[in-house]
Simulated assay, not measured.
Amino acid sequence: MLHVFVNDGGRLVWSKGAETMLGPLPDSAAWLDLVNPAPDERHRAERLVGFPLPTREQMAEIEESSRIRVLPGRVHLTVMGLVWADTESPRIIPVSFVLTPSHLVTVHHIDPQPFLAFRRKVSRDGLASATPVAVMEGVVEAMVERTAGVLRRVALELDTMGSRSLHGHTLRPRSESRDDTRTLRRIGHAGHLVGKAHVSLTSLRRMLEFLAGGEGAGLGKDCRRWARAALLDVTGLDEYALFLTQKVGLLLDTTLGRINAEQNEIVKIVSVLSVALFPPTLVASLYGMNFAHMPEKHWSFGYPYALLLMLLSAVLPMLYFKHKRWL
């Protein structure tokens, strides 16, 4: 899919007609957003800018020299974007920015939510400046805001789980239902999501570091000034993501420790009850033997005597355990 935004008197507006027509794209096109483009859409965009756009294989390269390339008249920048953050299967995908003096081309094969939100904002309100750098600023800021929102949501969820884990009962009451498997799954998902956000922020930080000091790339002062300001935000978010990673590890250790303590407490109670019930069982077994000569069987108070003996053999160990603080 090809989205075309043109420069209309200095403002960036969405040109729906240019997307549907089969001829060349208008020269006033300032931003071309290609979402999993078809061959003809890629060809139209390449005819306008005058050079080949990065392919899926080139975007998947992980070497720094492949992700940041300065070519004659243009700069190729590839970052990792966070997608599907609201689902159980978040992913990171490569997003390429091709920046020229007159055009910005973005290529991605899954549409990230920040791109969708920014396109809607431009189509509704327009953009005050249609320069390629201004458009790139808006897109990158939308990506940063989206990642910040994801980290805020994860932090709130970790705080909620941490409060329950640290202030809950070791042995839960009957009225409390706690699914430890679900809790561990939620912690794992939070750690997985924070890890994806960290990868995305790291790639954005490297791109902004290049833009902030890219005097040799033909970038203007406004671009470098914006990149320095955005770099502070991205660096802060990246450090916050690392903090959340440590918090996930602490919460995981705390939850596993609580589960282990709860299991040990249950085993302790079962063991104490087994020991406490052993003497009455021994007394009952003793008087349940079928020997002919057992004088207690002929006592008139033999039955109460056996019951009392079993009761005392159960109570006395329990009092001893209480005295030793084993219960």
Rank of each mutant, 00 (worst) to 15 (best):
Ser200Pro: 01
Ile92Glu: 03
Val79Arg: 02
Leu311Met: 14
Ser300Asp: 10
Gly257His: 09
Arg174Asn: 13
Thr106Ser: 05
Leu211Pro: 07
Glu137Ala: 07
Thr183Trp: 02
Arg225Lys: 08
Gly23Tyr: 03
Thr183Leu: 10
Thr254Leu: 15
Leu251Glu: 07
Leu204Met: 10
Asp125Leu: 15
His198Ile: 09
Lys297Ile: 15
His103Arg: 05
Ala190Tyr: 11
Gly17Ile: 15
Thr202His: 13
Glu265Gly: 10
Pro72Gln: 08
Gly302Phe: 08
Val140Glu: 06
Arg205Ser: 12
Val98His: 03
His323Thr: 07
Val248Ala: 04
Leu184Arg: 12
Gly9Phe: 11
Val6Phe: 09
Pro54Ser: 08
Val270Phe: 15
Ile266Tyr: 07
Ala85Ser: 07
Gly288Thr: 07
Arg120Gln: 10
Gly195Ala: 15
Leu32Gln: 09
Val150Asn: 12
Gly10Glu: 13
Leu250Trp: 09
Ala142Val: 07
Thr147Tyr: 00
His43Asp: 15
Tyr240Cys: 00
Leu32Cys: 10
Arg153Gln: 14
Trp226Asp: 03
Val75Tyr: 00
Leu171His: 05
Leu232Trp: 02
Arg91Cys: 02
Val4Thr: 13
Ile62Arg: 15
Arg228Ile: 01
Ala227Ile: 00
Arg224Val: 03
Leu204Ser: 06
Ser274Ala: 09
Arg74Met: 05
Asp27Val: 09
His43Phe: 14
Arg146Met: 06
Leu158Pro: 06
Pro132Ser: 06
Glu41Phe: 05
Glu209Cys: 00
Leu12Gly: 13
Ala117Ile: 12
Leu219Pro: 02
Tyr287Leu: 07
Ser96Asp: 02
His189Gly: 09
Arg205Pro: 01
Ala292Gly: 09
Ala292Met: 11
Glu296Cys: 02
Arg91Pro: 00
Ala30Lys: 10
Met80Ile: 07
Glu19Asn: 03
Leu244Trp: 01
Gln58Asp: 15
Thr106Leu: 00
Gly73Pro: 00
Phe115Asp: 04
Leu286Gln: 12
Leu319Trp: 04
Ala241Leu: 03
Pro317Cys: 01
Pro112Leu: 02
Arg146Gln: 08
Met318Gln: 03
Arg258Met: 14
Arg119Trp: 02
Leu12Phe: 05
Gly188Asn: 09
Glu239Lys: 01
Arg56Asn: 07
Tyr305Glu: 10
Gly236Leu: 09
Ser175Val: 11
Leu273Val: 13
Val98Lys: 00
Leu316Met: 06
His298Ile: 08
Pro304Phe: 03
Arg224His: 05
Glu176Pro: 08
Gly17Pro: 08
Arg205Tyr: 06
Asp8Gly: 02
Glu157Ile: 12
His109Ile: 05
Leu273Ile: 11
Leu307Phe: 08
Arg146Asp: 09
Glu88Arg: 04
Leu184Thr: 06
Phe118Glu: 10
Arg206His: 12
